[in-house]
Structures are given as C-alpha cells and as structure tokens.
Design a protein around this nucleic acid. Structure first.
Lengths: 194, 194
DNA sequence: ATGCATCGATGCATACTGTGCAAGTTGACT
DNA sequence: AGTCAACTTGCACAGTATGCATCGATGCAT
C-alpha cells in the first residue's frame, strides 16, 4: 500500500477543504459572487496558498466534477475484462452517479462561467479513459479507437447528464437515458432522411 | 438580404481587427506573453472597448476557431438533403479545413491556456449543429439523437484535428483520418476483447 | 438639412486575479 | 538534535474585468 505521511495527508485535507468551501459558498451566494479571498478566509488559509492548490477559483469549484470523473475511470477499470467497452462504461456511470451530489452537480453544470473549466476537466480525463480502454482491449494508447471512443463516450455522457439535470432528479430516468445513449453509440450514429 | 448599415459594418470590422491582431501577436510573441493592452494598442482601440467585444483575451484568440465552426455548420446546411448526416458532416469538414490557416490553428490548439475557451466554443456550436441536424432529418431539436450526434461528431472531429496537427500538415491525410473516424461512428463504437 | 433618440467608444475608478520572490514553518529522515 | 526539502505565508506588482458617466457617431423621421 502507499504509505502516506502526515505531510501528504495534510495536503489532501487542505485541497478537499478548499474544494468543499468553494462549493458551499457557491451554493449559498451564487457562483459569481464568491471570491478567492472568501474561500481562503473561510478555510483559514492564506490567499497565496489557495493558488498553490488551484490556479483559479473556477478550478476549485469544478474539482468535484474532476473527482467524479476519476471515480468513473476507476469503476471502468474495475469492470470485468470480458465486458464490452460501452457496457462497462454504462455500468461505471451508473455506479458513480448513484452516489453523486445532484445539487452541487446542477449548480456547476448550470453556471455559464464554469463551462470552460468543466469542459477542460473532461478533456484531461479523456486521456486517462483512452488509456483504460486501450488496456482493456490490448491496444496501444496511440491507436485511434481508444482516443475516439473515450472522447465521444464522455461527450455523450455529458449531454445526457446536462439534459437530465434539467429535469427533476430521478435516478431511474438517468439510468434509462444513459442506456439509450450508449445504445445509439453502439448501433452507429449514421442517419438519413427516410 | 440583410441590409447592414455603417454602424454594424464598423462593429464587424472592429471585431475582426481585434481577432486578427490577437492572433498575430500570439504568433509573434507566444500566447502567454500577449496582453489585452497590447492587442488594444495595436488595433488602435481603447482597452475598455476591447472588453465590449470580447470578455477575455482568450476569447479573442479562439474567435478564429469559432468562425470556422460557424463555417462548418453553414457548409453542413448547404449539403444535399438526401445525404446521410455523418457523410454530410465529413464533407463539410473537408471543405472548411481546405481553406483553414493551419499555422494559426496549431497555435490555438497547442496552447494549454486556450483549451477551456476553445472547448467552450465547440460546446456552444453543438447547439447550432444539433438544430441543423434536426432540420435535416425533420426531427425536433429537443430529441436525443440530434443532440448526441452533434456533440459526439464534433468531439470526434476535434480528436482527429488535434492528432492531425501533431503531424506535418498534409490535407490528404486529414481527409483520410476524417473518413476513418466517421466510419467508426457510423459503424458503432462497441468493442470487446477478442 | 435638422433635430432627436440610440448606440457605441472612451476614460476613470475600482475590485479581483494570478504569479514571482523571499522569509519563515513544518515534516521527514538520519 | 540536526539537516534538508517541502509547504505556507506576506508582499509587491502586473494584468484582468466591470460599472459608470460622458462624448461623439449613426440612424431616422420630419
């Protein structure tokens, strides 16, 4: 196991505390009205130190999304090896979303000022997911398929999530819509006028 | 036709001038070393006025990408109605990229600090593309298929473009790789361990 | 052409963001 | 205990971004 010293534990704790404070303040006052100074003060941390952890207030706020994306990749890697890629992804999403904080997620997804940073988070996770897919299939991470599959699948999940957050929270509906989208990707996206 | 007065023409000219100056300075000095003050001065515009056109220096720099995305959607809408969606997209991409400034594009795509804004541009164009797809197929823009198809196809194009920009400019290769990706999406993305 | 209403450009003030640097603390390891 | 490396902090400073008031240019009706 990875033996973590006090130092690393404190760092993780500080990072988590900043992330939670940022989100809490955003929920209370609205994303736009929270400043780094407030986040730092509320966490009892110097402003300068905040910037040692996050390069912007937006990054701190979408850190929750980043954590969920990491969890998704972890779940995916834990799926049985003989399971097809898209099905494994579908199940991974279901497991992660089951324990997700819908209220916070809705706040983050609906804030226009967080859109660029949120998308950047997904984009960086694309790489990790592509590697996981390549591992699963015994391909090279440089192949086209893992890259495209990771990127498009994540994007499809994002679309589903955004649509789902616009309706009353219903986890059964989310599962259903996830399956529908995965079905689309699996069956092929080509269409023409009937 | 839309009759544009002198006022609107000047606005468009100013916006284009700012966009071009931003890009030119970025090419000369590097994205990170360009300030709004420089862009404004070089365009002979007040700094305050710059912010009437773009909400950040990053937005001005990725404006070229936004213009290309708009052109892509225009080409797509101009394709024959009986053409399948993905094939129409493939052809639209080919036409837009044929007249694209590869050097500028490479600069924008490779700059990490522009990633969030660039992705935000794609995301906003997703909506327009989804509408165009819905129009083509006679579906509602609220249907799942247009939203997912627009989002995933744009994402797939992005992946291809990013990979292509990492190799020497060769438009034949780009066309080939575009076709390959569209083929993937058309055939379905599901895969499993052999 | 004149006069009026609107829109856009600008300067100013101000709050906030983000980073380099140097000094002080704390943790890890011997 | 002592030493080194890593982390925190304060300070200075450049740059970003917005509200507000003002001034000039444009569009339009008469």
């Amino acid at each position: 196991m990875t033996v973590v010293g006090r130092r690393e534990r404190k760092k993780l704790a500080t990072r988590a505390a900043l992330r939670e404070t940022a989100l809490r303040l955003a929920l209370r006052h609205g994303v736009e009205h929270v400043t780094v100074e407030q986040i730092a003060a509320e966490t009892d941390i110097a402003v300068r130190t905040f910037f040692n952890y996050f390069s912007s207030k937006e990054e701190a706020m979408v850190a929750a999304v980043a954590a969920e994306a990491d969890a998704l990749i972890g779940e995916f890697r834990g799926r049985p090896r003989d399971e097809p890629v898209l099905r494994a992804l579908r199940e991974a999403v279901a497991h992660v979303m089951a324990v997700s904080d819908t209220e916070a997620l809705r706040l983050i997804v609906r804030a226009p000022s967080l859109l660029p940073q949120r998308l950047a988070v997904y984009a960086t996770r694309e790489k990790a997911l592509a590697e996981a897919i390549a591992d699963r299939l015994g391909l090279s991470p440089d192949d086209l398929y893992p890259a495209v599959c990771a990127a498009t699948a994540l994007t499809a999940m994002r679309v589903v999530l955004e649509r789902w957050l616009d309706q009353p929270a219903d986890h059964a509906a989310l599962r259903e819509q996830t399956e529908e989208v995965i079905g689309l990707l699996a069956a092929g996206l080509e269409r023409r006028l009937p």
